[in-house]
Design a binder for these strands. Sequence first.
RNA 1: CGGAGAGUAGUAUACCGGCAGUACACCUGCUUUGGGAGCAGGUAGACCGGGUUCGAUUCCCGGCUCUCCGACCA
Length: 408
Amino acid sequence: MLQSRLFSHTQKEAPKDDPSVNARLLVRGGFVDKLMAGVWSYMPLGWRVLTRINHVIREEMEAIGGVELHMPALHPREIWDATDRWKVEEMYKLKDRSGRDIGLGWTHEEIITHIALSHISSYRDLPQYVFQIQDKFRDEPRAKSGVIRGREFSMKDLYSFHRNQEDLDVFYEKAKHAYRRIFERVGLTAYCVEASGGAFTKEFSHEFQVLSDAGEDVIVYCSSCDFARNQEVATDLKECPHCHTTLQTSKSIEVGNIFKLGTKFSDILGLAYQDEAGEKCSVVMGSYGIGPGRLMGTIVEVHNDSRGIVWPVEVAPFKVHIIPLSEKGEDRARLLYQELEKKGVAVLLDDRKERTAGERFSDADLIGIPWRVVVSDKTLAEEKIEVKKRNETDATLMDAASFLKLVC
RNA sequence: CGGAGAGUAGUAUACCGGCAGUACACCUGCUUUGGGAGCAGGUAGACCGGGUUCGAUUCCCGGCUCUCCGACCA
């Protein structure tokens, strides 16, 4: 893509109305734009990142059998009355022109269970795993920390339907591993943390937490094994119950959570199936969430330096950023740009007119694309291009063919 | 929802009870071209409502918005 087509501009100064690291860098780089507290637009650059994150999530959900669907955000009151959750304060409530009560979706257990009523009736229909990536609306008392805690935010929610608890338990472990892979692929070290199971179960649920001062949670975790627990449910726990190492404490960002719903929703809403013997049984459910927008904010919180964002390759908006520094350089840069596009490499060409080298470099550092290629009279004199990785300080001169081999 | 702070141009800021200034960005021209370059010219601004006052962006009151701390957070 041509940088002149990006729509957004970079900013030298961060707006003072949001001091979090992710907001400062994402706004300055032109990735996002704040409309009101907790409500963000994703500009072309930011949307590309979100799309890449969603791609990783889709792959991993599909790898464990998940099938994507899409549910509405506009919900009739009746469906929430059934579970007595219309009273939940986080739900945005409005009336349509006929005076009917409408809620904006802040989660979809009720909706998916309602849908399942007409599609699941036999043991032959089970198990099922469906997910969506969709915007949720929550009337948070206080939005904060840039894109990390919003009032409208994207969420991947997967719901699983099972014959019995054992089947849920097996899938739950699979989902846990899929989550681990997702966070690893997007460049995050996430602890799988034991947390309150809430009203639905006596068991722990699991949250995926990334250590960061920008987080709102506090976890205790073990530095020698993978034990971790939310401080809310870790009262007086001083040493690891597995290996007796002294536990560490840290603030952290909750980037995902999974929990076993059991038969709570199916019992209330009457979701049952008949088994081989014709016996009616409650469907056992699980629910699995990840916030892709929050993930993006968390990646920025973790991967940045004094110059800007340092995107992990898997979620970077582009893989290569080409910067020409002269007219001749621009001609050569365009050729390289075309070669890379032809090979399917996501590439951004700084085609902006009359920019100084310093300005281009600063913007490149801010935007944080993994590979930076400079084409100038200096490099052309040696028939080379200059290649530098965003997370390294030294640049290398090489010929274009070697670079193509490196990134394709 | 409790407590605190802040609202001046696209962004960051200054001053002031009496013509609102600067930097960056943006536009024009010239120069410059390996780390936000220079010169000249230009476009663009006081959150809303009320009060005090000859006069309010400035002082007072109310509202709205944003941020922070707390509460909340399937």
